Computed example of a mutant assay.
Amino acid sequence: MNNKFSRGQIFAGSLLSILLLSACSTPKAESPTTSTPAATSSAASDTLRLLYWQAPTILNPHLAQGSKDFEASRITYEPLASFDKDGKLVAFLAAEIPSLENGGVAKDGKSVTWKLKQGVKWSDGKPFTAADVVFTYQFVSNPAAGATTAANYQAIKSLEAIDDYTVKINFQNPNPAWSLPFIGSNGPILPRHIFEPYSGSKAREAPANLIPVGTGPYKVVDFKPGDIVIYEANSFFREANKPFFKRVELKGGGDAVSAARAVLQTGDVDFAWNLQVEAPILKQLEAAGKGRLDISFGSFLERIAINQTDPNKQTKDGERSSLEFPHPFFKDLKVRQAFNYAIDRDTINQQLQS
C-alpha cells in the first residue's frame, strides 16, 4: 500500500464536512470501489476533479435517486452529524453529539435533543437555525413531496425547536436508532427560506434542486444535469482557511472502465467513483502508476429487482403494477427459482472479486 497521501485522501481528510467518501454514507446499492491518483506535485492545484460515470441529475438529497445524487448534494449540504470510518458520530451542524451523559438522549429512549452550532450561515448569508431542522422534517415527512429519505424519519412523533439552537425529536416509541434522522447522506438540512414555497407536491419544482443553498464548504455555481457540477468555495463557510480547494468539478458520464482509466492510467482526473470493472483490468490499469484503488468494506451491493406485478394492468384508480395483479410469469415459484439458478456465482466470485 502506498503510504503517501493522494489528492483524494487530502480532500477526504481535510474536508471531512464534505463527502467522507464511502465511509460515512448510508449504505446504498452502489459499488464502493473508487480510485485516487498517486501523490504528485500537482496536489497543490486549486481544482479537484471528480468523475462519476453515473452522473447526478438532482442536487436535493431528499429527492435523490441514488448515490450519485446523494454525494453530489453532500458537497454543499450538511447533516447534523455523520459517522466516520470507525463508526463514531462526528458533529457537523450539531454543536455536540447527544448522549445519556450530557442529557441529549432521554433515559426512556423516546426523545433526543440536539444542540446546534451558532453562527453558521447558508451560502446566501442567511443564518442557520433550529427552524431549518424543523422545516426539513416537515418537507421530508409530507407524503406529497415523495422524499426518497422519508423512511429515515418514520419513527418520529413530533419535532420541536426549543430555541433557535436546540431541537428536540420525540419518537413514537423508545428508539435505539435515535441517530438515524438528520444523519449522513440521508440527513442534510434544507434552508427553510429557500424551500418553504415548494413544500409538498411542489417539491420537485424548486429551483434549488439544481442550484442549492447549503452550509457546507462549497456552493454550486453551475450544474448541467447528467453532465457536470461546478462548485466554488463558500465565502460564508464557518471554518477559517477551508476548504483547501477553490474549485471542485464533478464530471458525469462515460462508463466504469473509462472512469478507472482516467485516474489510474492517464491521470486526467483526481477521483473516480463506482468502478464496477473486472479485478484483472483494474490491476493492469493501476500498474501504470498514475493512481491507486481505494476499496472500502461495507454492505454495498448491486441487484436486479424483479417486478412481481403485472405492469400491463391497472386498477379502477389507474394504478399500474398493483399488488392486485400478480405478474403472469413471476408468480410461478419455479420461474423465480430458474432466474436464481441461472446466476453464475462462481464466475462472479472468481473474476469480479478485488
Rank of each mutant, 00 (worst) to 15 (best):
V220L: 09
I58R: 13
A106V: 02
G253A: 02
A338R: 05
A29H: 11
D84E: 04
V105L: 15
G252W: 07
A43Y: 06
P79I: 06
T57C: 09
A91Q: 11
L264R: 02
P212I: 06
A259Y: 11
F236H: 13
A145W: 03
A130L: 02
T309K: 06
F92G: 00
T136D: 12
N173W: 06
D222I: 03
K334F: 11
K107S: 14
D294N: 08
G184V: 08
T26L: 08
S82D: 13
K290N: 14
V140T: 01
I18P: 00
S179Q: 13
F70S: 07
E286H: 07
G252T: 01
K28F: 11
V90N: 07
A39V: 03
K202R: 15
L352R: 13
Q265S: 14
A233Q: 14
Y137K: 03
A72H: 01
K316M: 07
I162G: 02
S41Y: 12
A43H: 10
L89N: 00
V167G: 06
G254T: 02
G87H: 05
R303V: 10
P243T: 06
V120K: 00
A145V: 03
V257Q: 13
P188H: 04
E319I: 15
P61G: 02
K157Y: 12
K88G: 04
A240C: 02
Q154C: 00
G289Y: 12
P61W: 07
N274R: 08
R204M: 08
V140N: 07
E96P: 01
L59A: 01
I211R: 05
L63N: 01
P181K: 07
L51R: 15
A279W: 04
F271C: 04
V269T: 12
N349G: 11
A130K: 00
A177K: 15
A131F: 15
A272S: 15
S321K: 13
P27C: 07
Q138I: 00
I183E: 15
Q65D: 09
A91M: 04
G254Q: 11
G298S: 10
A342L: 09
K283G: 08
P174C: 08
Q353H: 09
R261N: 13
G13L: 15
R238L: 06
K313V: 05
P181Y: 11
R204N: 06
A91P: 05
K157M: 13
R49I: 04
V248F: 06
V335L: 03
Q154M: 03
P217K: 00
L51E: 12
D84F: 04
T166K: 00
G291H: 05
Y198I: 01
D124M: 02
E232Y: 12
F300M: 06
G13E: 14
A44H: 10
P191V: 00
F325S: 02
D163E: 05
E160P: 01
S14Y: 09
S123M: 12
A81D: 11
N3D: 11
T33M: 08
E30F: 10
W53K: 02
I281S: 07
R261A: 15
L180I: 15
D86G: 11
P174L: 13
H327W: 08
Q337R: 14
N349Y: 10
L59F: 01
D268T: 10
K290P: 04
N234Y: 09
N234D: 15
E30L: 09
G103M: 07
N170M: 10
E96K: 04
I10T: 03
K157V: 11
D317Q: 14
S67Q: 06
L19A: 08
I169W: 11
G146N: 13
A177W: 10
G318N: 14
